[in-house]
Design a protein around this nucleic acid. Structure first.
Length: 561
RNA sequence: UGGCCCAUGGUGUAAUUGGCAACACUCCGGUUUUUGGUACCGUCAUUCAAGGUUCGAGUCCUUGUGGGCCAACCA
């Protein structure tokens, strides 16, 4: 229903056009084709959301296909991690496919190619072949094996398959055009010998097909209608089509490859090799460190699948270079968490506050909303007593009228509690404030309905009763990189931009309702931000991650002065 | 130096395919608020440049400028 309202992106325009011309709606099929050689990250999320989103809007199946043609890099563990991440994002694939399931068909087609004189075994070194390949501005030249006989090619390819050759001795190449302006058409390699066990086919094969000889065929076998990939594969399209030309039959659907620009996120890096460096050099603790742009990192950080999908959706898709600001991602987590996260009170930088006219030993439980924006969220009770913690930031001995918080002689409301007035404070030898003494107005209790309780005071502070507070380890995260585009400097290594303060670990004091929280649960620490329970958390040692802070206009006001 | 792709506010995308440049975020300003949160309101682009076609151009054409991609037995 909301689809009719929404403008279409250029991929959807292509689909619409195909639907208007030669495709039937039932023929639409998409696929997400990761190589199981690492963890999924935000970049993959774009592709996932694009393909599965298309599947949803056209009610078309989407395959999850593992592009597992290089056993040197791929592992079962990554397959499992990828499946878990796609599921977590909230998508269901139609078929779970593997390029390795097509090894036999691919091999048979290669034989066919050889028989038609369109493929040959080359027995040169990769250096020699690279030499002959030319450059983008100069055409390539034919190698000495280009015109081997069909029989010889057949025999050699058979021996390659049977494991009679070492790696690197022979490859199978398509015979296309060594002078093509498209480098990829200069007799691309189709098969190489790899004496490695594959995580699914084990040692059944010792020749493995290359990407270009696999992808289009896989799409064709699965009858994928639209094969979407990133822009750097654009030159591969000609080869994709060439491969299909060799084998498509007219009664079956012919897949088409279309390309979109990968999404780049500011202050972030996504290259597998570089993320690995962050892990190996100990900048982060692991692949699922909450600072990592991996799906598992974002999950651990407290991001919701909805927020990532909404982000992908509003960013959209196009063909130009881009650098999306992280603030948009942050906006979407806040937007979602604001709706679903229960509010709680927690003090992260405690300052002791003593209410001198509050009876010693007295305690009462005050009622407070779980989410002011959601009537159905209900209320809970929080213990209040004579000695509380407030944030150090929330008290100043003196301040101008812009400062809505507590100052000597000034009044403030303790959220869901009483209105208090700061009377005095004590300091240590260095002049740091160690305690604030205040008085409260017993008639001003929140919700009591008294005239005093209805008084307007400018500031409201969150607080926690010292006696009842529970301690927790709180991990405060900041951007991993200080530069907007850490990967975008030709003369500088991205490691130079690592933010040394991307993680600060402190002890926080929480309202006691939080004592039984479980990993993954999300909360808003009122006035501070959104936090979730980390997987490291135990009942003895609670651990919270700050997913994202609240919008902080006060911080901006201060910055200006 | 060859081929291909791209160019719309600070950012990312739209524009019924030639008909009043729209949406979201950010920034800035304001209203509401027992979260300096949320919600709400307002300000911010004559579409890279120059020419052309047309009653009319972000959209079509030409040239230029700027950016990107292409020479792994990776995907």
């Amino acid at each position: 229903m909301e689809k009719a309202e929404k403008a279409l992106n250029f991929i959807e325009h292509i689909v619409e056009e195909d639907l208007a011309n030669n495709y039937k709606k039932e023929e639409l099929r998409f696929r997400f084709p990761p190589e199981p050689n690492g963890y999924l990250h935000l970049g993959h999320a774009s592709s996932i959301c694009l393909n599965f989103g298309l599947g949803e809007s056209y009610n078309a199946p989407v395959n999850l296909r593992f592009d597992d043609t290089n056993p040197a890099k791929e592992e079962k563990a990554f397959v499992d991690a990828i499946k878990r991440d796609v599921e977590w994002l909230g998508y269901k694939w139609d078929k779970e496919c593997y390029a390795s399931d097509y090894f036999q068909e691919l091999y048979d087609w290669a034989i066919m190619l050889i028989k038609r004189g369109k493929a040959y075994v080359d027995s040169q070194s990769s250096d020699e072949m690279a030499q002959q390949k030319g450059t983008p501005t100069e055409p390539g030249i034919a190698g000495p094996y280009r015109n081997r006989s069909v029989e010889e090619n057949l025999e050699l390819f058979e021996k390659m398959k049977n494991g009679e050759f070492d790696e690197g001795m022979h490859v199978l190449r398509a015979k296309i055009d060594m002078a093509s302006p498209n480098m990829l058409m200069r007799d691309p390699i189709l098969y190489r010998v790899l004496h490695k066990a594959h995580h699914r086919t084990n040692t059944d094969w010792c020749i493995y097909p290359m990407y270009d000889w696999t992808h289009g065929q896989s799409d064709y076998l699965e009858q994928v209608s639209h094969s979407l990939c990133t822009l750097e594969f654009l030159p591969h399209r000609a080869l994709y089509n060439w491969c299909l030309d060799q084998l498509v039959s007219n009664d079956k659907l012919r897949p088409k490859q279309r390309e979109f620009a990968r999404r780049n996120l500011s202050h972030t890096i996504v290259s597998k090799r570089k993320l690995l460096r962050l892990v190996e050099e100990g900048v982060v603790s692991s692949w699922d460190d909450p600072r990592m742009p991996t799906i598992s990192g974002l999950r651990r950080r407290g991001y919701t699948p909805e927020s990532i999908r909404n982000f992908a959706d509003t960013v959209g898709i196009a063909k130009r270079e881009n650098l999306v600001d992280v603030s948009l991602l942050e906006f979407h987590v806040r937007e979602h968490l604001n709706r679903i996260a229960p509010r709680v009170m927690a003090v992260l930088n405690p300052l002791k506050l003593v209410i001198t006219n509050y009876p010693e030993g007295k305690e009462e439980w005050v009622e407070t909303e779980n989410n002011p924006g959601d009537e159905n969220a209900g209320t809970r009770e929080v213990p209040f007593s004579r000695e509380l913690y407030i944030e150090q930031e929330d008290f100043k001995e003196e301040a101008n009228r812009k400062f809505f918080r507590l100052k000597l002689g000034g009044e403030v409301r303790l959220k869901s509690g009483y209105i208090i007035k700061a009377e005095s404070c004590t300091k240590d030898a260095e002049g740091n404030i160690t305690e604030v003494q205040c008085t409260y107005d017993p008639k001003s209790k929140s919700g009591s309905g008294t005239e005093e309780s209805l008084r307007k005071v400018k500031g409201t502070l969150h607080w926690v009763s010292i006696k009842h507070a529970i301690e927790a380890e709180v991990r405060l995260y900041d951007r991993l990189f200080n530069d907007e585009n850490p990967d975008g400097h030709k003369d500088k290594d991205f490691m130079e931009f690592v933010n040394p303060n991307s993680l600060t670990t402190i002890t926080g004091y929480l309202e006691p309702n939080l004592k039984d929280v479980k990993a993954g649960e999300r909360f808003q620490f009122q006035r501070l931000g959104y936090f979730n329970v980390d997987t490291d958390s135990t009942s003895e040692n609670l651990v919270f991650n700050r997913t994202v802070g609240l919008r902080d206009t006060w911080a901006k006001i201060q910055q200006k002065n």
